[in-house]
Design a protein around this nucleic acid. Structure first.
Lengths: 193, 193
DNA sequence: CGACGCCTTGATAAATGTCAAACGTCGTGG
DNA sequence: CCACGACGTTTGACATTTATCAAGGCGTCG
């Protein structure tokens, strides 16, 4: 179990283990030479991370609040998977899911700032216990680094949504979805083919 | 075997099969409601595609020149994988590789236009038989849709590289890397952590 | 030779980033 | 308990990047 601000170096530790967020929140990220940081994904309670075993583009991981993390040795998992088809299948499904989410994120990054923020809010809402009340564990900076936007743009976009009564902001880290349909209209994008 | 401009609907066909490019080139893509298109990946001779089995964000595929495609039924593959650990392992490695490439592409999309184009050229060069002579099977529009840029920006960036004697352009679809180090400097970005 | 498609280039506009300042919130220490 | 300071957030003015619109060039194929 790991506690707040524990840090996992992408190059050394991550590839060796699989992790499960028991409670709290984790971000996986990479830092560019010039200091820009990209947050690949946020993982909330119940999520698994560390699935990517590709060595060249390994990500690092950090807890963003007090968190409890379950660590699973890959070597142990491999043995289990060899004997249990169900475990192997679930591993495969998780990797496929991660691939799908990553591809969706790629699509997200070619959109406008409003579309990105709307998508992010809807996604967070869907992952929350209450689908219209969002407790954000991450800062605006984190959101920006995840969406490929600056803090200022994230903040301005949220203000715009607030002005349009699409969301409410009882506090910095707490967002209320007032008009989900509007958000979905803004985030509009994906089509069958 | 499929011929030029054959089209695979992401929703129906793709999830059922795995494909191998015997020769030619294929693009996987999704189209947004407003007409914007995003090309997820280009696949050249020897590459496999159709690994993503995630239903919600399924991609479509198209050949971009005369191509020969090998089609592998997933149901058959599953049976083979059950009996042959080697096949299962290779499937897993391919999926992991795809995940890594997709994550790298996400990182790419937060960079500037020059960095994106430089990265693209280096990647294509590495996948070419001759690592400094690139035959591009795709149009500028395709490159733009892959990098999240407009045709004009792609063209201007190439012209800039040309002016700086970083690349040569004997013809539209043929690029020569004159100064690989410069490209790598431009594309500079990823750091260990 | 001419038409068409693709590519390049230029002028302009829109979106987002940068820089700077003010505001709130929260934790700390007087 | 209140005052202060640090930090995260918001907002504004301005700069830069990239998209958009428009025109012209080049190459290919009928």
């Amino acid at each position: 179990m790991l506690r707040r601000e524990c840090w996992l170096d992408g190059a050394s530790v991550a590839a060796d283990c699989l992790y499960k967020v028991v409670n709290g929140a984790v971000r996986t990220f990479s830092v560019l030479r010039d200091g820009r940081r990209h947050i690949a994904e946020f993982y909330l309670a119940g999520d698994f991370f560390g699935l990517e075993t590709n060595s060249t583009h390994a990500l690092s991981a950090e807890a963003i609040c007090n968190s409890t993390i379950l660590v699973i040795k890959r070597s142990v998992l491999a043995v289990l998977a060899d004997h249990d088809k169900d475990i192997a299948g679930r591993l495969r499904d998780m990797t496929n899911g991660e691939l799908g989410r990553t591809q969706a994120h790629v699509t997200l990054l070619i959109k406008t700032s409003s579309e990105r923020v709307a998508h992010f809010l809807l996604e967070m809402a869907d992952r929350s216990p209450d689908t219209s009340e969002i407790e954000l564990p991450m800062s605006r900076q984190d959101i920006g680094d995840h969406l490929g936007l600056t803090v200022e743009t994230v903040s301005r976009t949220l203000s715009k949504f607030d002005d349009a009564a699409v969301i409410g902001r009882p506090s910095f880290r707490h967002v209320t979805l007032l008009d989900r349909a509007a958000l979905e209209r803004i985030q509009r994008c994906e089509r069958k083919a």
